[in-house]
Design a protein around this nucleic acid. Structure first.
Lengths: 340, 340
DNA sequence: ACAGCAGATTACATCGTTGGAACGAATTTG
DNA sequence: CAAATTCGTTCCAACGATGTAATCTGCTGT
């Protein structure tokens, strides 16, 4: 920068002023400086800027696992939203582990970013005060409500209710709630189970506890495993509301291996609208959770917090719009039978 | 830091020395300082450290697209390898666009990271000098060989040859090379086609150009689209060597829709061993490219470049070990027929 | 008892940038 | 025409850490 100043025959501070687009610079001066910058290939030292101004234009995104398609697509949406606004994203994988999440939240790296988007998995409502850190933060996901921070999420209950109704409308009545976490009221699992129950209630159907299948982890292998057990148990069902797409895809694969036809014998709908659902055999009906809207809103809210001024003092809540995506796995078959 | 020094009754520099584990500190002093750090909850300012020491412990990973499962899994592997060594990763998505890649490589953000892992897609051999930037860099992928930088990749030719032989051993002789880029010698497509040709030659079979199916992009939808055209054209084949898993999955879906049985009518093998291949119907045989080894090696090489000392001056090349993963899509059927 | 020396600590300058006050020049005002 | 105001620029200090060199301890050996 010193060299640029010399080349343009101005002071260092004027160069800085030009770069930061301060008011009150003569057009002639500006052009001379820009020319010198160009000629010398000058690039600002971001560490120095960060030190002096307290801003790094880096935000951190804490997610459980990038191998999980939902989070990969979320990360993509967040990075795109951030990039549009001149920020870059550091991704930190927590594995959904409580200890690791706390370590990240309270680690020194937090001091090098302007803010954090934290996809909560390891912490829960009681830990709300643990996320009260000096770095601006916006929460994603369902595990902490009414905490001290802004919160962006999807309409879990309503979406799950809509998914369930989607199957009911197609004449299915014995529906598995696939992926429940018993004893959990909050969190995606709890909320989605609640939506399932509401849909049944509205349809005048009774909630049967044995149809709520507990699956702790929501990877494909867990879905496959759990469906294998269901089939062995001989439980009768003609529809599946899977609490995410991976579970649904794993389960679907096992049902097909067992000779069940989808959607003729069993209709199934998932959650998240990951890319893969458009290419499975059959294609999987699912809930589009409004991922882009979630990412955009979260980034905007975070930037408002960082700027300081634009945002109200109180924590905000935002729920994105969802959509039911109807595909082959819940198509209306000409005729259908029940299963074992 | 000032406060810590005061609390421990030492100078600021001693605090710095303790943190950086300098030699020659009395155990008593060290403990007093550590206690003060603990008590005051001190955390170093990484921008300041970065400014003074020139190191930020951040590395950048440039990839085309995080929504692509291969790159999501690669990013995960890189982040895990980096995390083990105390580095964090900034991910930059290039979309595989030449302009965007150059912009990232020459942007000011490069000056805030210690090094870059660059998964080349937009540039090619002739651009080798454009990647000669002041920041340490390690290349991933196939498009630039013998450039000025270290390079980590997989054994494309050998792996493709092995994949092709895998099908030949199972009695298939009319094999599509699915995902070729005509007129491209270098790059994954060119190398994999070469491996395919070598396998045919070794088996005494003739290379038939119409069996090399050109597919420019390697997403699932492109695979589906291309396979649709192949089926319409009436080209006869009984095996497919797809140049990545997404292409294979897209193609598989279309073939099944058309009533072809896999592996009975057509056997198919992909490339990359993405998670999804374990859960498709049928499960997809593929090539494990040695992703973890690639990521680990690339990170280690980059860190060596950053440290400066450990590495030889000349650019290094490294090829990871691959494995053929045999699954249902190439299982040996009791009997099989040809297709239209 | 004192020079000599190594180990432990400190003072000071510095990394590259930006905020704020001060300054000189140009312009407007009474 | 002098004084007040605005504009454009410069000077200086500071952000929080670390490298270098200097300093201060306490110990050894003669």
């Amino acid at each position: 920068m010193r060299d640029v100043a010399q080349a343009a025959d101005v002071s260092i501070k004027t160069v800085s002023n030009v770069i930061n687009e301060h008011p009150n610079i003569k057009t002639g001066t500006r052009e001379r400086v820009l020319l010198a910058i160009e000629k010398l290939g000058y690039q600002p030292n971001l560490s120095a800027r960060g030190l002096r101004s307290g801003r790094t234009d880096v935000i951190s995104l804490i997610i459980p696992d990038l191998k999980n398609a939902y989070f990969a697509e979320l990360a993509d949406a967040v990075m795109t939203a951030a990039s549009k606004r001149g920020k870059v994203v550091i991704i930190e994988q927590s594995g959904g582990l409580r200890e690791r999440e706390l370590e990240i939240l309270h680690g020194p790296r937090m001091r090098m970013v302007d803010g954090v988007l934290y996809s909560v998995l390891g912490l829960s409502q009681e830990d709300a005060d643990l996320i009260d850190i000096p770095t601006p933060i916006v929460l994603l996901g369902e595990r902490i409500f009414h905490g001290p921070a802004d919160h962006v999420t999807m309409q879990n209950i309503e979406a799950s209710q809509a998914a369930t109704e989607h199957l009911l409308q197609r004449g299915r009545t014995k529906l598995l709630a696939f992926g429940a976490h018993r004893n959990e009221v909050i969190g995606s699992a709890g909320l989605r189970l609640e939506g399932y129950r509401r849909a049944l209630r509205n349809a005048g159907l009774e909630y049967r506890d044995e149809l709520a299948i507990d699956v702790q982890l929501w990877h494909r292998s867990d879905g496959a495993q759990a469906m294998r057990q269901v089939l062995e148990s001989g439980l009768a069902f003609d529809g599946v509301v899977a609490f995410n797409d991976s579970l649904a895809l794993g389960a679907m694969r096992v049902m097909q291996d067992a000779g069940l036809k989808i959607p003729e014998d069993v209709a199934i709908i998932g959650f998240d609208d990951i890319d893969e659902t458009r290419y499975s055999l059959p294609t999987l009906s699912t809930i589009d959770p409004g991922r882009r809207e979630i990412a955009e809103t979260a980034v905007v809210m975070l930037l408002e917090r960082i700027e300081g001024a634009a945002a109200p003092a109180a924590a905000r809540e935002f729920e994105a719009e969802f959509k039911v995506i109807s595909r082959e796995s819940t198509a209306i078959p000409s005729s259908h039978g029940a299963n074992a």
